[in-house]
């Protein structure tokens, strides 16, 4: 933080700054620090996954093991939640998982930017999942997909009350999915910056205490970064399962 700026808000880290201005009509398509973070994330994932399995050795090196583990982790997740039918959707779930995970991890680096701390980014991700799963449901079951909103074994006079409730519950999925990821990242990063302020403002050498706390918090944040990517992936799997099997 420069002395001339004197902006010490813990929310300053979430500010979007455009690097390259670019407009189509009235739509602002500027290349911002958020876009840069996403490009870096994609590049890191692509480079890591292609280079690490390049050797294809039977006894894997440590790096190769990491990418094989991440593959196996998602494959197992899909198998547990969706079953053998879920194989087809592995690329989709794996892409989302890696994008969120590496995006969170890139955000943990000092001076970088956490794009998952913006609700519009997480909502776009959740909307892709939601729309994709809905299309999948209609493609698999046609108009039968609407029976998803009817709880089996219910007396008919309860239907007018329960169908709107089910529809609202279904529509709330992308919101809860996106808010969970966004709020976790936002809260964690803000908390770290707030404690960083204490380090500066506390008298004498007592700033060491919040500094130690920041170290612990950073560890916790890395755990949360992984956990939220995992939650995003597992919920995507559950939604795919719902669309395939209806109830």
């Amino acid at each position: 933080m420069s002395a001339s700026g004197e902006k010490h808000s813990p929310l300053e880290q979430f500010e979007i700054t455009p690097f390259v201005h670019f407009e189509v009509g009235s739509v602002d398509l500027a290349f911002t620090n958020s876009s840069l973070a996403m490009v870096i994330t994609t590049a890191v994932i692509t480079l890591f996954l292609t280079l690490s399995v390049n050797t294809r050795s039977i006894i894997p090196s440590r790096v190769q093991l990491i990418s094989e583990l991440s593959y196996g982790f998602i494959a197992q997740l899909l198998k547990d939640t969706v079953g053998e039918q879920g194989r087809k959707y592995f690329p989709f779930v794996f892409t989302i998982f890696m994008f969120v995970l590496i995006g969170n991890m890139v955000g943990m680096l000092p001076y970088s930017f956490t794009f998952t701390s913006h609700i519009i980014v997480t909502f776009a991700l959740a909307a892709v999942v939601f729309v994709g799963v809905t299309i999948l449901g209609f493609a698999k079951h046609g108009m039968n997909f609407f029976s998803f909103f009817v709880i089996p074994g219910l007396p008919w006079y309860m239907l007018p009350l329960l169908i709107p409730i089910e529809v609202i519950s279904y529509l709330s999925r992308p919101i809860s999915l996106s808010v969970r990821l966004f709020a976790n990242m936002l809260a964690g990063h803000t908390l770290i910056k707030v404690f960083a302020m204490f380090v500066i403002t506390m008298p004498f050498y007592s700033g060491v205490l919040p500094l130690a706390f920041i170290v612990a918090l950073t560890g916790l944040e890395i755990l949360i970064a992984f956990l939220q990517a995992y939650v995003f992936a597992i919920l995507t799997c559950l939604y795919i399962n719902d669309a395939l099997h209806l109830h």
Partner: peptide, 20 residues
Amino acid sequence: SFGFKISTELVAALVVGVGI
């Protein structure tokens, strides 16, 4: 994270209901 999961589920449905 468990508590957070529950609360987002609750709030998200309310948000959609109010929106509609």
